[in-house]
Deep mutational scan, measured.
Amino acid sequence: MIFPGATVRVTNVDDTYYRFEGLVQRVSDGKAAVLFENGNWDKLVTFRLSELEAVK
Rank of each mutant, 00 (worst) to 15 (best):
V24W: 01
K31E: 11
Y18R: 02
L23Y: 07
D14A: 11
G39E: 09
K31N: 09
T16M: 14
A6F: 08
V13T: 10
M1D: 14
T16S: 11
M1W: 11
A54E: 09
T46W: 15
T11N: 06
R26F: 15
R9V: 10
F47I: 05
S28M: 12
F47V: 04
A33S: 12
E51P: 02
D42C: 15
L44P: 06
V10K: 00
D15K: 05
G22L: 03
T7V: 13
N40R: 11
K31W: 15
F47S: 01
Q25C: 13
Y17M: 08
A33D: 15
P4N: 05
K43E: 11
D29F: 07
E53M: 09
N12G: 05
S28T: 10
D15P: 03
Y18C: 03
T16E: 14
N40F: 09
D15S: 15
F20Y: 12
F3C: 10
L49C: 07
E53N: 04
V24I: 04
E51Q: 06
A33V: 15
A6W: 09
Y17R: 05
G5S: 04
R19Y: 08
V55R: 04
V27S: 02
A33E: 15
Q25Y: 09
D15F: 03
G5H: 02
L49G: 02
E21N: 05
F20E: 07
G22F: 03
V55E: 03
P4K: 08
G5Y: 04
N12M: 06
W41V: 12
R19Q: 14
N12P: 04
L35S: 07
L35R: 10
V8F: 01
G5V: 02
W41Q: 12
G5I: 02
V34R: 00
A33K: 07
F36E: 00
V34I: 08
V55Q: 04
L35F: 09
T11R: 06
V13Q: 11
E21A: 06
K31G: 06
K43F: 12
V24E: 01
R9S: 05
E37G: 12
V34N: 01
S28A: 12
K56G: 12
E53A: 07
L23N: 05
A54D: 06
L49H: 03
A33L: 15
T46G: 04
V34F: 01
G30L: 04
G5K: 02
A32K: 00
T16R: 14
E21G: 02
L23W: 07
S28H: 13
D14E: 10
F36D: 00
L49S: 02
L52H: 01
L23H: 07
R9M: 09
V13M: 09
G39T: 09
T46M: 11
T7E: 05
N12D: 07
F3G: 08
K56N: 12
L35Y: 12
L23Q: 10
W41K: 10
G39K: 09
E53K: 07
R26D: 13
K43Y: 10
T11K: 08
K56R: 11
T7M: 12
E53D: 05
W41M: 12
D14F: 13
P4W: 05
L52Q: 00
N38W: 13
T16D: 11
E21I: 14
R19S: 11
V27D: 00
V55L: 08
V55P: 03
V8M: 01
V10M: 01
L52K: 01
A6Y: 08
K43G: 08
D29E: 10
N40T: 12
V55S: 05
R48H: 14
F47G: 00
D14I: 08
T7A: 08
G39P: 08
Y18T: 02
W41G: 14
K31P: 01
V24H: 00
G39M: 09
E53W: 05
T16I: 14
W41L: 11
G30P: 02
G39N: 09
S28C: 14
V34E: 01
K31H: 13
I2E: 02
I2M: 04
V45L: 07
R19D: 12
K43R: 12
E51W: 06
K31S: 09
V45I: 10
T16Y: 14
G39L: 09
Y17I: 02
F36Q: 00
V8K: 00
F47Q: 00
V13G: 07
T7I: 13
W41P: 12
V8T: 01
R19K: 12
G30S: 05
V34Q: 01
F36M: 06
F36I: 09
F47C: 03
F3M: 10
D15G: 07
V24C: 06
R19I: 03
L49A: 03
V24D: 00
L44E: 09
R19H: 11
F36R: 00
V10S: 02
S28W: 15
V34H: 01
L23T: 14
G22I: 04
T46H: 08
S28F: 15
A32N: 01
